[in-house]
Design a protein around this nucleic acid. Structure first.
Lengths: 363, 363
DNA sequence: TTGTAAGCGTTATCAT
DNA sequence: ATGATAACGCTTACAA
């Protein structure tokens, strides 16, 4: 007479009773373990389970718990993303994200978003991370991301999961990156071909040889070399301001730099938006682009519009959508193929010539 | 001498041994149950747990399993999204999604994306759905989404979770919607004020009174009424083609309609992109917009550009970003406040006058 | 206020 | 090839 007050999900036990076998047999049969159960039994039990409405997912928690004993990592169909804070407001990050979504969304993966910020600690990571529910991670900041995840695994005794890095290459991660060196080469070569010799460029200090800045710089140098020019005298270095907010202030520093070094006739901006602000600030100070100074951007994510709403920015296009897509594909591969080596995929970039560059003015 | 081969996560049992209490006390203390454990004990145990590196998340699976007995739904910090297929390619959906992200991403919720398509069955739902791991759902198609989720709960014996619907209102869901009626009113009123009397509009047949089409239509009618005009003779109905692909074909049907009813001088397009295609097709057939015919869009998501790259489309702007944000906020509320009633939030819309409308030509 | 026992649904181990 | 038993780590119910 004890009526169940709440209908709950079907268990293996119930399927077993229905079939007149033990729940152990059901467990093995549902996993299709041919070594331990006969094909006949498997077929029968699977049919009954289906008809009965058994839902293998419903008790995933029990499965996870049981599997702890044998220390087997369990797949949860969940992927962790470590993205820059506010990624949904930035063209660059949005495009990467969209590429990732295009691949993962149709596969019904759960996506857990974590933010990359310098002050993030292990405790601040999304709770799904700390539950060890993530099958693999995708990060846009390989160095910091890898560090954070390693610390988490260490602290909580988790086994390591595959990590794929977008844009940056780093030890211990697979990566999908644009050809940073080629990007630098194409831009510098373009400016040198136009006749520019003294060019301003930007960098951060103390970066690893695989950092985009370092790779780009080696591309610049190669372009000089190939033309028989000395890059040490031609390339004028400037530290990129680290704050995105005071782009304006950075641009004014550039103005001073240009006044101090009147030989400079072209600028390799660190990214498109930076180039756009430079164009604005320079024109407000009476320097026309490109007549007085040529400027190139990087990424082809943010246009620099003239009065006719046309994008005038000469730049290198990064295959961001494709990087997002291939990163996700690579991640899925890494999840299914247990023990493979980390690999790096480099995707080609393309010079987009527009109207922000022209031959230098003869002085 | 039995060295553990693999370091695994700390359990309550280990914390209990360290403190010299039972694991039961640890369980109660970590949850801060003041009715059963003294403050003193709680503080001590919590301190030891923290120092010891106990991670409450690490054994979430065990917690879920244990809680099944008492049939308590467990929160997983996971939200299910039911979006239109390919949402990342459509301005409209993208904007909604971005609003949702802005709110949920900083809270580190796991997002599970499911697609809305007519042929989706319960079995096709993301496996996180079928694991009953979703705290609440956000859907952009309340009718179908609700139906699908109800069927899932029924089939698998899950308890129902809160559902928030975006754009559409529906029984059994909270909702955040734009003021569809007002949108219709503003557009019709705008056209009538310019002097148009015979206006073409679009609809789907057999929709509920809360469907956007129905609400918009009542807005159109109100505009006619307020001016003392008869909407039955003024409004010319046309069935909206259901396929997004053959917008071109739909537009050609409109051409025929206009030839058949030469009184018609204005069109209330069902959405911006539709309006854009109409403008193209009409102009290719020698009808200029707005000189020969006025056209208004809806949503303000897709511009109709002229040769000068200016958006000429008069339309009503939907607060999509805000709908996304507030839907997510509402969802979070519904997760924390157990038993509250469903509510609907209606957000204001705004008429954006541009150059695709003008007074009708005197015949 | 604290401890003991039982059970959530699964899987691994060992027996048959 | 199949079954019995003991975990996995937690929580509720009840006993002390």
């Amino acid at each position: 007479m004890a009526a169940k007050n709440v209908k709950t999900s079907i268990t293996m036990q119930e399927v077993a009773e229905r079939c007149g076998v033990s729940k152990m047999t059901v467990s093995l049969a549902l996993r299709g373990d041919l070594k331990q159960v006969s094909q006949e039994t498997i077929d029968h039990i699977q049919a009954v389970a289906r008809e009965f409405g058994y839902n293998p997912g419903a008790n995933h928690a029990a499965r996870r718990l049981a599997l702890k004993k044998s220390n087997q990592p369990v797949l949860n169909n969940t992927i962790g993303l470590l993205l820059w804070e506010g990624f949904y407001e930035v063209n660059y990050d949005q495009t990467l994200f969209r590429g990732v979504l295009e691949v993962l969304a149709p596969k019904y993966y759960a996506l857990v978003l974590g933010y990359i910020r310098r002050d993030v600690q292990v405790e601040d990571l999304p709770c799904a991370f700390r539950r060890d529910e993530i099958d693999a991670f995708l990060t846009c900041d390989a160095e910091f991301g890898r560090h954070l995840l390693d610390e988490m695994c260490e602290r909580y005794g988790f086994s390591k999961r595959p990590v794929v890095s977008m844009i940056y290459q780093h030890d211990g991660c697979s990566a999908v990156v644009p050809d940073h060196r080629m990007a630098g080469y194409l831009l510098a070569h373009h400016l040198l071909s136009l006749g520019h010799r003294h060019i301003l460029h930007f960098a951060d200090s103390g970066v690893s040889p695989f950092h985009p800045f370092a790779l780009r710089l080696s591309g610049y140098r190669q372009a000089y070399q190939e033309m028989g020019l000395d890059s040490d005298t031609g390339l004028h270095y400037m530290h990129r301001g680290s704050q995105k907010d005071n782009l304006q202030a950075c641009a004014e520093n550039v103005l001073r730099m240009l006044d101090a070094y009147p030989d400079i006739t072209a600028i390799l901006a660190p990214y498109d938006e930076y180039a756009g602000v430079l164009i604005d600030v320079l024109s407000k100070h009476g320097k026309r682009v490109p007549e007085d100074i040529s400027i190139v951007g990087l990424d082809d994510t943010d246009p620099a519009l003239n009065e006719q709403s046309q994008n005038i920015l000469t730049t290198v296009r990064m295959p961001l959508l494709e990087i997002g897509r291939q990163s996700a594909e690579l991640l899925l591969q890494r999840i299914s193929n247990e023990e493979t080596e980390d690999i790096t995929i480099t995707l080609p970039v393309e010079l987009i010539k527009r109207a922000s560059t022209c031959p230098p003015r003869i002085k």
